[in-house]
Design a protein around this nucleic acid. Structure first.
Lengths: 218, 218, 218, 218
DNA sequence: CCATAAACGAGACGGTACGTCTTGTCTTTCT
DNA sequence: AGAAAGACAAGACGTACCGTCTCGTTTATGG
């Protein structure tokens, strides 16, 4: 009488077999991504609903539920896709950190670019939404970090290692922690509105981080 | 599709006079705080509803809507109250930063205490919820910062200024920015799950921040 | 974690306490009755939906689900109310069978009136819908009979008993069965489209039933 | 609200050529009949769905939609087929009414057999479902009558005509109407739960119908 | 005996409605 | 007048089916 259920299923939830990916409609997926991103920008994340995304994309709700388990997941993929698309469209490398030999200048340049990106509403709305969701939903938060944040941070790690080889950073420094000295303050000001964001601010962060707060004794 | 609302009240909404604070039921307020905090801990913020809080507090929904405008506001006040209550109960000062003359040691000690607090579920659940809400709701985010974050950060500013007077921090350093070098990395790791949190980690942050990433001499 | 459940509840269904009838909105009830009847007439029973009734009545869906358990129940009550309302409006007695002393004439008159009623779309659409639902849903079917059919049939029982006293019907006849000889054929032709319905037809039924199919032997 | 449709196909709908009957899969048809009948018995008509039939029959949904236009049509054919199959299996004539010369006895016998059939769930579930559907869907209702009901009723017409020739029924009686005096009451009690069904009841119906309700002499 | 065209199983799709849940407002009753 | 209680309009949730539309895969002649 009751449908077959898999082990971990909650009562009443039917165990749908995994959908067949090969038959997936590319057009619908694109439309869903576009609708989700547009809605988050236009009405904000909390008032972006799955029904709204479906309606705007001209898609049945089930088509969303078939492939994603929450609006956060939809938005995550949409945002990832947006990033990949930007890269494809620009034809550039997936933005690396320059290595001119002047570490301070290179870091300042990248952070200034980040400041600009953080203020672009096309990126701000969805990434803020995902960050917020991730704060309260650990699983999604970790996915957000793995797929979006960590790849960017790795670029700093690489640049810092190169600086270590060049003798511009002390060899005993852990680059993964070091980068947080200038990246996290910017992130926190942006995320939590703890302070204004400007080129001057990020420049200062780089200087403080490289030379320390304490006086240079000889 | 989304209903635009006029400044205070949409049409059809009767402009209730501000409720009379003097007649407010203290018992209900306490019950609402307790219910809100308990629910956030037990079922998480997204599944904490106003209805749920009212039911658990044995209070009419209107009693909540009369005094607060959203569940985030309820939780904010509840959390603030929790803090004040802790202070009252312990009889201690509202936790200051020690000033032993050893800046590094003092900062490490405070950050270690912060690490412990971040792992206490009584504090973690509501503060994480409020932080998440604040990321996506600027008004609430700024309130969160003003009422909760900034007072704590001010303590670091004070300590750093004292260090500057003692010659342990370069005089040209802006303490409000300086504190972010070690506070923001911890905040980001906690908020966004970008990395593990430990005493060793916070100690390292303090060392890096004080002495900089670059070598002392060329 | 799971909500309180009453004994017979299926999993996942929360045990709502019975709503408080005294606070019920009379206006909403009327609007729901009107909408349900109008929709059944206009679009037919299968395409009458709870959502449609709610929308047309300007009522939330929950207000329907709070007081009724299915669209059939809504329609049943709406139809009963329609009947009572007709009676109230006309100020007449709830239509009785005349007793002129001429049984055949009296029965023919009532059946002719019934023929007219069966062809009135205001009555036909909902009663057909309820009859259909009752065929396949025994519980509702019995309710339909008890509340709507049986009271009408009782009038025939009364008239036939009076005829028995007058010597116009044999004393050993069971009136409850006897009435079916002329009522059921009409009902079946109407319900199942097994034949045309006319005054001539119902007159014939009365004659056949009263005098039998077999020849009168002395 | 309801979409008007052009003669054969609304815009966007491809005009599928009539499918080629000769290539039809007999196996699928049988499986569909079996699944439809089984589901109606097991879960009831309203919860019998086309998807369910297809799944149970191990058949694509399109195979159903290719050959039938609604679940009622599927069930109608399945039920007709069931009847034919019963006849084939039993090797009997498609059940006629005996003609022993005793009209009352013959009618009582046939009605008793009908009572039995009406209580057989193999027949009851689908025929009740079809009857219900027919009440609300005139086109289907007429098809139901033509294909299922009328052929059976014709047998009564024949038997009554034979009785007229034998002088057991008055010559001016219309047999098509006459049969309703005992058939329709049974039908209504079964369909609408207006009363219990028993041999005694049907016997009584025959007696009442043959001899009338009125006394023989005045 | 193979070529080919249909019917077929499978199932994704755009939709509609379901029945449930929560929101924020309103009303009733009690204190 | 504030509060508990809870009905109400509104609307999103996630599910079930609808009927349509591809997809390969049988299968069944007819060239």
């Amino acid at each position: 009488m009751a449908a077959q259920k898999s082990a971990q299923n909650s009562p009443g939830k039917i165990d749908h077999p995994a959908p067949n990916t090969t038959r997936r409609s590319e057009k619908s997926r694109r439309a869903i991504y576009d609708a989700a991103l547009a809605l988050v920008v236009e009405v904000g994340y909390p008032r972006t609903t799955i029904e709204g995304i479906a309606a705007r994309a001209g898609v049945g709700k089930q088509t969303i539920y078939r492939w994603w388990s929450s609006k956060a997941e939809v938005l995550m993929e949409a945002f990832l896709d947006l990033g990949e698309q930007s890269v494809r469209d620009s034809g550039l490398e997936p933005y690396a950190i320059p290595d001119t030999g002047d570490l301070a200048a290179d870091l300042k340049a990248v952070l200034r670019a980040t400041v600009d990106e953080l203020k672009d509403p096309r990126f701000e709305a969805p990434s803020r939404a995902l960050a917020a969701e991730g704060v309260v939903n650990e699983q999604l938060g970790r996915e957000f970090v793995t797929k979006l944040l960590e790849p960017s941070l790795q670029l700093y790690v690489d640049r810092l290692r190169s600086a270590q080889e060049a003798g511009d950073v002390r060899p005993e420094i852990d680059p993964r922690i070091a980068l947080e000295l200038f990246v996290s303050p910017l992130a926190q000001r942006w995320l939590q509105y703890t302070g204004p964001i400007s080129y001057e601010y990020t420049d200062t962060l780089v200087d403080y981080a490289l030379h320390g707060l304490a006086p240079r004794t000889r």
